[in-house]
Amino acid sequence: MNRSKDLDIIAPDDPILETTEPTNIFTKEPSKDFPKKNHPPKKEEKPQTNQKIYDILGHTKSPFSAFLVNPKIFDFTERQDKEVVILAVRSHWIVNLKWIFIAILMLFVPNIVDMLDTLKSLPNSYQFILHLFWYLFTFIYAFEKFLDWYFDVYILTNKRLVDIKFNILINKHFAEADIGVIQDVSSSVRGVLGTFFNFGTVLVQTASEINQIIFKNVPNPERIIKAIQELRNAPNCSPKGGEL
Score class of each variant (00 low, 15 high):
residue 220 N to R: 04
residue 2 N to D: 14
residue 12 P to A: 03
residue 15 P to N: 03
residue 41 P to R: 11
residue 207 A to V: 10
residue 207 A to L: 14
residue 141 Y to L: 00
residue 173 H to K: 15
residue 35 P to R: 00
residue 66 A to Y: 05
residue 199 F to I: 10
residue 46 K to W: 02
residue 70 N to P: 08
residue 87 L to Y: 02
residue 241 G to T: 06
residue 196 F to C: 13
residue 18 E to Y: 10
residue 27 T to W: 07
residue 117 D to R: 04
residue 38 N to A: 08
residue 115 M to W: 14
residue 212 Q to K: 14
residue 149 W to Y: 10
residue 74 F to L: 08
residue 150 Y to C: 10
residue 230 E to F: 04
residue 102 I to M: 09
residue 85 V to A: 01
residue 161 L to W: 05
residue 92 H to T: 07
residue 226 K to F: 04
residue 38 N to K: 10
residue 165 K to F: 02
residue 241 G to S: 03
residue 159 K to R: 15
residue 51 Q to H: 13
residue 22 P to E: 10
residue 30 P to F: 00
residue 168 I to C: 12
residue 148 D to N: 13
residue 149 W to A: 01
residue 26 F to W: 06
residue 123 P to E: 05
residue 95 V to G: 01
residue 182 I to W: 05
residue 151 F to K: 15
residue 14 D to C: 04
residue 145 K to H: 14
residue 50 N to Q: 15
residue 84 V to D: 13
residue 27 T to G: 04
residue 166 F to A: 11
residue 173 H to T: 08
residue 54 Y to N: 10
residue 65 S to A: 07
residue 146 F to Q: 14
residue 100 I to H: 08
residue 70 N to T: 00
residue 65 S to T: 11
residue 106 M to P: 01
residue 48 Q to S: 12
residue 53 I to H: 01
residue 87 L to S: 01
residue 12 P to H: 12
residue 55 D to S: 11
residue 90 R to F: 00
residue 107 L to M: 12
residue 171 N to V: 12
residue 244 L to E: 00
residue 180 G to N: 02
residue 181 V to A: 02
residue 220 N to E: 11
residue 202 V to Q: 05
residue 200 G to F: 08
residue 233 N to C: 03
residue 136 L to M: 15
residue 88 A to T: 04
residue 95 V to D: 12
residue 26 F to R: 09
residue 139 F to H: 11
residue 119 L to R: 08
residue 119 L to P: 15
residue 56 I to L: 05
residue 24 N to E: 08
residue 13 D to Q: 09
residue 39 H to I: 07
residue 99 W to K: 10
residue 132 L to E: 12
residue 205 Q to L: 10
residue 200 G to R: 09
residue 64 F to P: 05
residue 241 G to Y: 06
